[in-house]
Design a protein around this nucleic acid. Sequence first.
RNA 1: GCCGAGGUAGCUCAGUUGGUUAGAGCACCAGAUUGUGGUUCUGGGGGUCAUGGGUUCGAAUCUCAUCCUCGGUACCA
Length: 514
Amino acid sequence: MSYPRKIKGFRDIDANMNQLRWKIINSAAKVYKKYGFEHYDTPVLEYSENLGKYLPDSEELAEGVYSFNNPELEPKFDNKGAEIRDERNNVVMENHYLTMRYDLTAPLARLYAESLWELHKHKQVQEGKTPLLRRYQYGQVFRFEAKLDPGRFREFWQLDFDTVGTDDITTDAEACMILADALEEIGLKRDNYIVKVNNRKIIKGLLISLEITEDADEQNIMRIIDKADKIGMQGVAQELGQGRVDEKSKAKIEGLNIDNEIVDQIMGFLSDFSEINTRANILEKLNSKNIDNQTYTEGVSELTKIDEILSALNFDENRVIFDPTMIRGMGYYTGPIFEVEYVGTYKDSKGRKRKVGSICGGGRYDGLVEKSLGMKVPAVGASIGVDRLAEILTLTKQTPELAQGPVIIIAFDDNLMTEYQKIAYELRTKDIEVEVYYGSRKNLKKQLSYADKKNCPIAILIGENEFNNGVATVRNLKLGKELASQITDKKEWRERVQSEVKRENLTEEILKMI
RNA sequence: GCCGAGGUAGCUCAGUUGGUUAGAGCACCAGAUUGUGGUUCUGGGGGUCAUGGGUUCGAAUCUCAUCCUCGGUACCA
């Protein structure tokens, strides 16, 4: 015997949850296809080195992912793909590190790099002329997080679309449109979501103008700015400077100890955008800044282009806004970044009001494929967090109606099992979903409760009497449910929802009812 | 990781200043209904009070440790 239990952060999904999940996936996929994306899949497990530098033996970087040694011994390769040999010229074997995918973007980069590997080796593809790939993909991704926030799991689904092989900024604008369209197709109302757009080049350009050019500093500063909506502008200023003490938790948070003057400049820049503002106003403000390095200028002109396209297609401020304080966590983004926030709150199981936060994210990552291919390949994409969205739809009671169950054939009499099977098979050839009741408890009440729970539309009752008379009793469970609240007299109710039909007409009658 | 709050039936929880046999609602099972869903009514099963030690005549209740859960905070490629 063992104690049956699940790993923390992993879930079982029942029929209702699956119904909602696949509604989300099918709706979004429909939109992705409309824009010309094709459906790809990649394995759940990858060689760790292909997913980035997150190896289990480098403590810091292994955090947050599931990695382990491959039980299979395989040849060791150098980074050009050649087998490494020892002094006796034998191939060196090792157990490679494997990692469960933590998103769908890194595996895409691997897939794309792999497909170009040989061509690139023989110099048959040139930078700037790499093939175009537009794919969408959905599936589980895995992250190890010690403590889970509400609505977050260690295994969760993402629903990505990416365009690899072009640096045309139009695809970035398109990504925003796709996110908006997909969410509306899923059923979100227009004022329940907002796509937020920023460009990493703008903050980067600002930092360059302040003579902050170290990668680590830049990352740290961006990380703190990203927390603005959580800790407030004052909190950001404190964490950039001397640090702060969180009031609620009394936690001491160390600051970056940046000079006051520079902190003031950064805060001054950000606070200019703190008021909700139109895209045009934000662009105007960005242009008016006295910053003239190339990174900054590029960032602003890219945003300008995105605004042009969005505006021309009537994607207005009620769907897509610019937010110069939005950063996003993933380190591989190099240009425009997107995030979708669910607007509004919900009440959790204890009645507490909660904010939802972001439900989609994405951006341009022009350097990711290069890491494994050794050649620059521009790419942009975004992802819908399926489980988060499902959670929100459930909590705000926007779930689809319970799916209709199968027609149920009540098993009265074991001797009639062959007859039940014949009826079921006959109906199935007409594309009707049918189930013969197999439960061990055969009393009628039990069987009808079972049918009720599965939302069965019709029950077919054939006992010895019916069989001998060549008839079947058919009960309309769907109608019965509707009438249950109106009719109190059981006898009358039964007469309304139940009828006897001839055995040879049964299939025909069921087809009429369903 | 840090701070705080918790752990009592399958689920949600109540349980007085320590005092007989630890309760409720939901769910489950059965009957009222001699083969007929919902509602209603009646009855029934189900708990090593997270685990281990301590205090006490006596512990779900006080105490210590451990484990786990939740909230906040930090981290999040």
